[in-house]
Computed example of a mutant assay.
Amino acid sequence: MNENVARAMWERFEPVHQLVYFTPELREAADGLGLRGYWKGYFALRAAPLGPVPASVVTSSFYVFHPDRAASALPDAWAAASPQQVIETREQAMGAAMTSFFGPDVVASAELAEAADLAWEAARAADTAGRVLGAANQALPRPAQPHVRLWQAVTTLREHRGDGHVAVLVGRRLGPVEALVLKSATGETDAEFQQRIRQWNVEQWRAAQVNLSERGWIDEEGRLTGAGATAHEQMEADTDAAALTPWQAVGADATTRLARLLEPLARRVLDSKIIPTGNPVGLTEGTWQSSS
C-alpha cells in the first residue's frame, strides 16, 4: 500500500468533513450558542475537542492563520459556551445537516452505516503521537447515529492528516504565510482569498513571496518554478505518506470498500458547489484514482 491510497482517501472524506463549514444548520447552531459571526463559530467548532484552550494554542495547531484571527474568537467563545457544549451542539447540528443535505434515505441506509463503521475503525487506528488535533478528535466518544459517527470519523482522519502536513511544513522550514503563497502559486487555491481569510497583510504576503523567490521556488511574478514544483510535490508526497497508517491498519479490502462508499457522498458535495471555488484546502474534483 503506497501513499497514493492516502491521497485517494482524502479526496473522498474531505468533502464530507467540509460540510461543517458551509451548511446553514451549523451556522444556526453556532449562533444559538452565542457564537455569532462566522469566525467565532469556526474556531469554536473546530477547536472544541482541544478543550478551553487560548488563541495561541489554536493559532499554533491550525498553523496558517494570523494570530489576530484566532484571538478575535478565543477565548471569548468559551465564555458563551463550554467546549463540551460546542461538541454536543456540533454533533446534533451535523446530524441535521447531513440528513438535509444527503436526504433521510441516504443517512438511514445500510451503506452509510457500513461506511461509518469502517471510517470509525480507521480513525481509531490513526497514530496520534505529535498530532494534537487528530488526538483530540480521536478521543471523543463514538456517536450513536451512523451519519454523525461517519462525520466525526472523517473529521478525525482529516485532522490527523492536517497535523502531519504541518509537521512536513515545519520540517521544510516553510512558515504559515510561505505555505499559503506556495499553495496559491500551484493554482490549487486563490491567493487573494487565502490572504484575506487567513488575515495576513500585504507586507507579510510580499515578504513571504521574497523568501520563496530567494529559495528559487517562485519567480519574480509569483509563478511556480520547476524547483518550487518539485518541492511542493515532495511535501505533498510526504504528507500522504504520513497519513497512510490508518489505511495500513484496516487493510486494503476495508480501505477499498470505504472508498467506494464515500465516493457518491463526496461527489454529491462537490457537485453541489457548496464548497466555494478557490477554497482554502484546494479541494477540487481533481484526478480521482480508481477504488477498484
Rank of each mutant, 00 (worst) to 15 (best):
E3P: 00
A6N: 02
E11W: 10
P15W: 01
L19E: 00
T23L: 14
P24I: 11
P24C: 09
R27V: 15
A29S: 09
D31G: 08
L35N: 08
W39K: 12
F43N: 04
L45E: 05
A48H: 01
A48T: 03
A48N: 02
V53A: 04
P54K: 02
V57F: 08
V58K: 07
S61F: 14
H66S: 11
P67V: 09
D68A: 11
R69V: 04
A70N: 01
A71F: 01
P75A: 12
D76M: 12
S82M: 07
S82Y: 06
V86M: 02
T89H: 04
T89M: 05
E91Y: 13
A93L: 11
M94C: 03
S100T: 14
G103I: 13
P104N: 06
E111Y: 09
A116Q: 01
W120K: 05
A125P: 13
T128H: 02
T128C: 06
G130C: 01
V132W: 10
G134R: 08
A135M: 03
A136D: 02
N137L: 07
A139S: 11
R142P: 01
H147F: 03
Q152K: 13
V154P: 11
T155M: 12
T155Q: 13
R161G: 09
G164A: 06
V166H: 04
L169C: 10
P176H: 08
V177T: 12
V177M: 07
L180N: 05
L180W: 00
L182P: 04
K183A: 14
K183I: 06
Q194I: 12
Q199R: 09
W200G: 05
W200I: 08
N201V: 11
N201H: 13
E203A: 15
R206T: 08
L212W: 11
L212C: 10
W217M: 12
E220C: 09
E221G: 09
G226S: 10
T230F: 08
M235Q: 08
E236C: 10
D238I: 00
D240F: 04
D240M: 02
A242G: 08
V250R: 03
D253I: 04
R260Q: 14
L262P: 11
L262H: 10
L262Q: 11
A266P: 06
R268I: 05
L270K: 05
I275R: 15
P276R: 08
N279L: 01
V281P: 00
L283F: 06
T287H: 14
S291V: 09
S292L: 07
